[in-house]
């Protein structure tokens, strides 16, 4: 099918995935309390501001490091490259830049590993890669992770983060919402556990599909979670949104997530939930 997509796609070389992580010895300013700290200290605290508790965004690599037991992670579909179905030059350039800056091939990393000794399938979205927007390949990697989790009878943990559907892939991106939801319905029917962890920010086509279909939905403190982005809402209603609107705590109050879990407790909470769902 899809003859129109015949255009030759550019392939990219793989570079060091750690290249965009904040190098040691730099000072960072907390965007919330403006406290300036040494990044070395931040790292020890899982990139949470010691003064105000602000959760910095994590790269997929950092997330896996603090979540998966050391040496247990096997990555899936690592070499799957992005597609440019409509052949936009601008899009090729954007993909190339995202790849250069992150070392990732796409905006999601999937695989299998142990969380506190429990095997699990994991998907982690990385906002540095085109705001972790969902195009065909992001949708495909997530779908495959769900399917493999079902085949292997593993619990599934998805760390969602996304600006929404990837515009450059048009309706193909939109259809990934239905594709991931269909895979989840088969997964759920098999009686398996899906924990969705909403991280900053989870919006658009990702929040309106697999991210909100978790059996248990957790969120990190302060994470922006919603369908429409705050700027779009402000432009529509022509007024400023109140402080804390669409933040994780707001969603918990309104009944849309099960718990807000601070990063230092997240791994143990996941392990505990998975343990409570063990069949034996």
């Amino acid at each position: 099918m899809l003859d129109i997509f015949k255009k030759q796609r550019q392939r990219y070389a793989t570079v060091n995935p750690a290249s965009r992580e904040i190098p040691d010895g730099l000072w960072v300013k907390c965007p919330r309390c403006h406290e300036i700290r040494f990044t070395g200290e931040l790292g020890k605290q899982l990139k949470v501001c010691a003064k105000c508790g602000y959760h910095f965004r994590l790269t997929a690599g950092e997330r896996l490091k603090i979540t998966i037991d050391e040496g247990t992670f096997t990555e899936w579909d690592r070499d799957m490259m992005p597609v440019n179905p409509f052949g936009y030059t601008e899009y090729d350039e954007k993909l190339a830049r995202a790849h250069r800056e992150t070392g990732l091939n796409e905006a999601v990393v999937t695989g299998e590993g142990k969380i506190g000794g429990h095997r699990a399938a994991v998907a982690v979205m990385d906002t540095r890669f085109m705001m972790a927007s969902m195009g065909t390949v992001v949708g495909e990697k997530i779908t495959r992770a769900i399917e493999r989790a079902r085949e292997k009878q593993l619990p599934l943990v998805i760390f969602a983060a996304s600006g929404g559907a990837r515009m450059q892939e048009g309706v193909l991106s939109l259809m990934q919402m239905a594709k991931t939801c269909a895979a989840l319905s088969a997964f759920s029917e098999a009686g398996l556990l899906y924990i969705s962890v909403l991280t900053d920010p989870t919006t658009g086509g990702v929040s309106a599909s697999f991210a909100f279909l978790g059996d248990i939905i957790l969120a990190e403190p302060g994470a922006l979670i919603g369908f429409a982005g705050p700027r779009v809402i402000e432009q529509t209603i022509r007024q400023k949104l109140p402080e804390g609107f669409q933040r994780a705590e707001f969603l918990r109050q309104h009944g849309f997530i099960d718990a807000v879990v601070p990063r230092p407790q997240l791994k143990s909470t996941l392990a505990q939930i998975i343990d409570l769902h063990r069949s034996e």
Binding site: M1, F5, M80, P85
Partner: peptide, 10 residues
């Protein structure tokens, strides 16, 4: 399910 990269020629 068919709306996947492997169905895009090339």
């Amino acid at each position: 399910r068919r709306i996947a990269p492997e169905y895009l020629p090339g």
